[in-house]
Design a protein around this nucleic acid. Sequence first.
DNA 1: CAACCTATGTCAGAATCCTGACATGAATCA
DNA 2: TGATTCATGTCAGGATTCTGACATAGGTTG
Lengths: 150, 150
Amino acid sequence: MNQDGVDLETSLGYLLKEASSVLRAAMEEVLRPLGMSVTHYSCLELLAQRPGLSNSELARGAFVTRQSMNVLLQTLEREGYVTRPAEAPVGKVLPTRLTPRGRRSLEKATVAVRSVEVRMLAGLTETEQSGAFRILRSMIHSLRDGNDGA
Amino acid sequence: MNQDGVDLETSLGYLLKEASSVLRAAMEEVLRPLGMSVTHYSCLELLAQRPGLSNSELARGAFVTRQSMNVLLQTLEREGYVTRPAEAPVGKVLPTRLTPRGRRSLEKATVAVRSVEVRMLAGLTETEQSGAFRILRSMIHSLRDGNDGA
DNA sequence: CAACCTATGTCAGAATCCTGACATGAATCA
DNA sequence: TGATTCATGTCAGGATTCTGACATAGGTTG
């Protein structure tokens, strides 16, 4: 049961993974009563903020493959949360939009998720939060830069 | 191809997920030539720093279930990277240890992973890094506190 | 204009991981 | 001491996700 003293805890990468893991668990916990998974919620949130997103764009935004997002979209469409045109208005892209039902479902989820984020940020000053924001963006940028160009 | 302007990017939770996702992808990229997955590497690194860890403890440290860690350990044991006693010296816990081969394998992986972490931290001052460390620990603590007690 | 390259949506298969459940050993407590 | 509670290792099953592959549409370049 020794959990202290692990030198891995001096690694920012490990800490990042741990934070992300805990955040995901917390989100799943509050989303489960609503019958929603994290990817499910992410998809709806993305569509609310950027209506007409394609399957591939949604996949990138939710950090899953387009194949996984596709099966999710088919379920969401079948259950009436989103709509996709039967035929692509241009090219092969099928722009997806929230239905009123999807919007209602998202509202409750947003409240739940926001409460988790508030809890996560408790104890941090505004300055610290903006600092964290800037640092995370820097990490993402630095990692992406040398991703395939190395 | 619009990727800017997403309001989700003002969310620290989303940014945390994005950073973790990019970090994982970067680690997988450098680990793949070594025939190693991230969980695989995490397991070895944990064992190097805390020899004798049990399957359940390794699972918690690598953020997977003990069932998943168990199948990984069976593979690692079969391939000679780790050793577990045939019988538990005390209770049911089987303390796991790295073999010389496992240690050698880990060394190369550690170099690769460390290069990713260095790249991630490029452009951040020492002060910013320790700030990020403190902020992430605060987030984890805040989320864990109200995890099941709410 | 034609060939090439990229991106998208989709299908099929495999791999991975998790949920549920069981028996066993240790610790706690009456 | 005996019962209870908790944690561990393990097995079986199912669900989710990913990898690989294909055809098609659009833009690019010669």
